[in-house]
Amino acid sequence: MAEIVSLAEAVAAAIGDGDTVAMEGFTHLIPHAAGHEVIRQGLRDLTLVRMTPDIIYDQLIGAGCARKLVFSWAGNPGVGSLHRFRDAVEHGWPVPLEIEEHSHAGMANRYAAGAAGLPFAVMRGYRGTSLASQTAGVAEVTCPFTGEVLTAVSALRPDVAVIHAQRADRAGNVQFWGITGVQKEAVLASARSVVTVEEIVDELDPRPNAVVLPSWVVGWVALAPGGAHPSYALGYSARDNDF
C-alpha cells in the first residue's frame, strides 16, 4: 500500500545516492517539484532516465546530481535547448556526463519490457542508424518462427520511478489522464515509486482515458499542487512557455 507523506519524506525514503531514477512525463505532468526536492536533498551520482529530458533534468545536471543520462530526446519541446546538458556533453562542464541514447520507440519498449518482467523487448528499429553502434542495450535478434532479423532492446529496470499525477485518493490509488506517456510502464518497471499529485480526494470518479495505478503498486504519494510547473497538468494548469 502506498504511504501518503510529504514530498521531502517521499524523496528521502525512495532515493539514495547512485540510484537509477526515472522521472517520467511526456511534455504533460513533468514531476518538477520532485526534481527540485532531489536537488534540495543534494543527491549525487544518479543515473537519470527519461525519454524527453527537459529543464528539470537540465537543472539536476547543472546542480551536479547526475553521473549519467539515459534518454531519447533532450530539449524543452518548442522552447529551446538544454544549456547545462549541452555544456556537459560538448565541454565536460561542470563535470562530464555519460550518456546512453536511444529512440523514443526504443525507450518506450525498454520500459514496457521492464514492466512485463522480461529481459528485453523486440521491435523494428535502429537498423541503419548510427545510434545502433553508439548505444549499449541494442542488438539484433532473429525471430524463432520466421527467421526475420529484428531489434532487441534491453529492459529498463530503474531503482525508482518518479511521476506527477492529477490526483490520488486517501488510500493512495493514483489517477492521471490526458497525455499519459510512459508513466505507467515506468512505475511498473521500477523497484520503488514516488507519485506527486495535484490533489488528494475522497473518491476517484472516472475520467476519460485515465490510467489508474492501484495503491499496492505505488510506494509513496505526496501532495504537490502545481508540482508539474512549468509543464502542465490537464484540468489543473496550463503550460508556462515563458518560464
Partner: peptide
C-alpha cells in the same frame, strides 16, 4: 561541436 536534441520518434 554541437549537441542536438537527439532522435525522438524520428528513426521509426
Amino acid at each position: 561541436r554541437v549537441r542536438l536534441p537527439g532522435a525522438g520518434g524520428a528513426p521509426e
